[in-house]
């Protein structure tokens, strides 16, 4: 008996369309504006698609949920070749604030909220926000240093447990 050879279009039909992911755990590890926003946009976007989302803030990423720092996050103007800014200009005092203001204007026009408002929006969307215990200890931070919407301070092991059954994105 000879095997049936399927035409390409039939092969395609045979393949199962992959399912949309149901759960995602996003790690935010950097404290610059361009280090924090992608993770926040991914988390908000996941919730908007009905995908369960956890956000785990570690190292300088903690700035995004630290009361005293969350509204002072800036674009890195040094060591950031993608900005197209001559290296020497990047070190001028006030340059990070200037570039950050320019970017903030662009983002406002696109309806992307400033970090404190974005964190609130993501918390209200039902995503869970966690701080990394090792980083919290390293920076001598206390639970009261963080936004009220923080759901807990987790060890790496606990983070992995919570991430069970989902995808992990590191930013």
């Amino acid at each position: 008996m000879s095997a049936t050879i399927l035409a390409p279009e039939e092969l395609l039909r045979e393949e199962q369309k992959p399912e949309t992911i149901k759960k995602v755990s996003i790690i935010i590890s950097k404290g610059s504006l361009e280090g924090i926003y992608p993770g926040l946009i991914l988390a908000n976007g996941a919730r908007m698609e009905g995908i369960e989302a956890d956000v785990f803030f570690t190292f300088f990423g903690l700035d995004a949920i630290t009361r005293k720092k969350m509204d002072k996050v800036r674009v890195a103007t040094v060591g950031n070749p993608a900005l197209g800014l001559p290296a020497l200009l990047g070190i001028i005092p006030g340059m990070p604030a200037f570039v950050t203001r320019q970017m903030a204007k662009k983002m406002e026009a696109l309806d992307i909220p400033p970090i404190p408002e974005f964190i609130q929006l993501i918390a209200d969307s039902g995503a869970k926000l966690y701080a990394c215990k090792a980083s919290v200890d390293m920076f001598d931070l206390k639970p009261e240093d963080f936004v009220d919407t923080l759901d807990g301070i987790l060890t790496v092991g606990e983070f992995y447990q919570k991430a069970g059954g989902g995808q992990i994105i590191f930013t």
Binding site: R47, G50, D111, E117, L121, D124, S125, G126
Partner: peptide, 22 residues
């Protein structure tokens, strides 16, 4: 979603209760 929460007079938390899948 930001504008919906601010201007539809239904806050974000409630939006997700009404429409859990987005």
């Amino acid at each position: 979603i930001r504008t919906l929460g601010k201007e539809s007079s239904v806050p974000v938390k409630e939006l997700y209760q009404l429409f859990p899948k987005g």
